[in-house]
Amino acid sequence: MEAIFKKLSALSATTILLILSAIFVVLFIYAKPAVQKYGIHFLVDPRWDVSVSLNKNSANNTPNTVNKNMSDNNLNSAPIGENDADVLAALGETNTQSSNNTETIYGGLVPIVGTILSTILAMFFAVPIAMGISIFLAEIAGPKLSKPVGIAIELLAAIPSIIYGMWGLFYFGPFVSHLFGGSSVSLLVAGLVLGIMIIPFMSSLTRDSMNTTPEVLKESAYAMGATKFEVIKDVIFPYAKQGIIGSMILALGRALGETMAVAFVIGGVFTFPKKIIDPTVSIPVVLANNFAESSGISLSALFYLALILFVLSFIVISFAKFYFLRNKK
């Protein structure tokens, strides 16, 4: 009995490893047709669902088509044949290569750029405010104020992200477009909503790290005649540095993979935002909007995007874990 239970619990622990590897492998298998067809070029190709002619003579078929890209694609596009036939069949392949020498190109650059830009924007907005909130909670407000406000912040971190998205769509988006012009769905709105969503998460983690600074260390800096700001800058931040940076990266990881807060407000169009107030799209939003209706190579391209997102966030989170939050245990 003891032995059985021990084995069972070890097996359960291994499940974590199994599921994570399975996610990677399964995403890769489903993405394989697209990976083989578009190769690494997928990462830098801005075209999504664009028909191009296979005939070099009619290169100006669509305005988005670039000659050089096209010939690259011709080289890569040939072998959707034998080896992937079963996967494509499983995906319900509907023959993307229509008979009259055109094919549909899928490239991930726009959503990749959209994801990165919206995350960067969110971080630019959230980091100063979250730092302000955590400094306020940890050092400025007295216990009477900091406790209820702290609890409120933690509760706000628990609110489902779809609520942030809805609020963004109906209230914040119009507000931002009123202030800065442009549409009420845009990269800017998406970045800001994302930022607001991660503020509670980031500030409660940062406050917790700041609170690990021993009281006596702070006293000892005050006893040297330091001001509050100097104590924060010279003692608390250096002391809690790892935890603070770690919490920022965790928040960044959250912003990177967030779907619902962004889906309402980014616009969902496959164009580069020329201005910050233009709409665009991010990887999670592409997945959310197109997954149910896709099949064949377009579904495979979506899996390719999912794989990219997974690997990206895996790297970011592992980085945070192994470099900044490791001394926790």
Binding site: A13, Y30, G257, L287, I317
Partner: peptide, 29 residues
């Protein structure tokens, strides 16, 4: 154990939509 522990923490932050695509692939499809 420490490997699994870290891995589990990483998994906690995996994008939920990616989990959706994974389950789509292994169950829905």
């Amino acid at each position: 154990a420490s490997f699994i522990r870290n891995l589990s923490d990483v998994m906690m932050s995996a994008p939920s939509i990616v989990i959706g695509t994974f389950v789509y692939a292994i169950v829905v499809n």
